[in-house]
Computed example of a mutant assay.
Amino acid sequence: MHVIASFPFSTNVELALKKLEENGVLKNNIVAIPLKSIKNGDHILDTLYQSDGHGTLDLGFILGTIFMLLGAIYGFVLTWGPIIWGLIGLISGISLGFIIRYLYIKRKNKLYLPKEQKTEVILIIRCSEQQIPMINQILINHRAIGLGELQK
């Protein structure tokens, strides 16, 4: 039989291991696996398979439409005409909206995301069926996040 437990990375893991050894579980029957935290890079554009809910082009399209309209209106009075000024307004509006949204997302991520994510430790304990209730109780008392049993 195997008992599998998940712990947050803290001193409770060490205390649980010590208590298990005091209650007759051998050291070579315990495996502790610390998980490494993985930092996912920030994505500017959403893809079909991954979306974080931040549309970076929405503001750009809105500002592009407004600037294109203003460029076409005032292009009648300006030298190059309404079509060229409409295209200039479209490109500058999309660029400005993208830059504003990108800087906003960067600032928001810097302010509100935790600097370091806590990782977990997975314990795998080989034991007999008689030891399972005692091991489960020790792990629960030392704040295990989850417990599971694997029968062979």
Rank of each mutant, 00 (worst) to 15 (best):
59 L>M: 05
52 D>G: 01
67 F>S: 08
52 D>E: 03
91 I>T: 15
46 D>L: 04
47 T>N: 05
69 L>W: 01
19 K>G: 07
82 P>V: 02
3 V>A: 04
48 L>F: 12
85 W>C: 15
9 F>I: 15
27 K>P: 09
101 R>S: 12
24 G>T: 06
76 F>T: 12
60 G>K: 03
30 I>S: 00
123 L>W: 02
127 C>Q: 00
109 N>K: 10
69 L>M: 03
122 I>N: 13
41 G>Y: 08
32 A>N: 07
58 D>E: 14
31 V>R: 07
82 P>M: 04
114 P>R: 08
122 I>L: 15
66 I>P: 01
76 F>Y: 14
40 N>H: 11
16 A>G: 02
115 K>V: 12
123 L>Y: 04
114 P>L: 08
32 A>H: 05
12 N>S: 08
32 A>K: 10
39 K>E: 11
87 L>M: 14
20 L>W: 06
64 G>K: 01
58 D>H: 13
124 I>Q: 11
149 E>Q: 09
109 N>V: 06
67 F>C: 08
52 D>H: 06
145 I>N: 10
2 H>W: 14
142 H>N: 07
81 G>S: 00
104 Y>N: 14
152 K>H: 12
115 K>P: 01
149 E>T: 09
145 I>P: 08
27 K>C: 10
29 N>H: 07
7 F>D: 02
24 G>F: 10
106 K>W: 08
58 D>P: 09
130 Q>E: 09
49 Y>I: 11
89 G>F: 01
127 C>F: 06
40 N>I: 14
22 E>T: 12
152 K>M: 13
38 I>K: 03
32 A>C: 04
52 D>T: 04
26 L>D: 14
102 Y>M: 07
123 L>Q: 02
129 E>P: 05
55 G>V: 09
34 P>M: 03
73 I>T: 04
1 M>G: 01
130 Q>D: 10
130 Q>W: 07
114 P>W: 05
66 I>S: 07
64 G>P: 01
98 F>L: 06
14 E>Q: 08
135 I>F: 06
89 G>T: 06
58 D>L: 14
17 L>A: 11
123 L>H: 02
94 I>L: 09
21 E>G: 11
90 L>F: 14
147 L>P: 02
1 M>A: 07
72 A>W: 13
14 E>M: 04
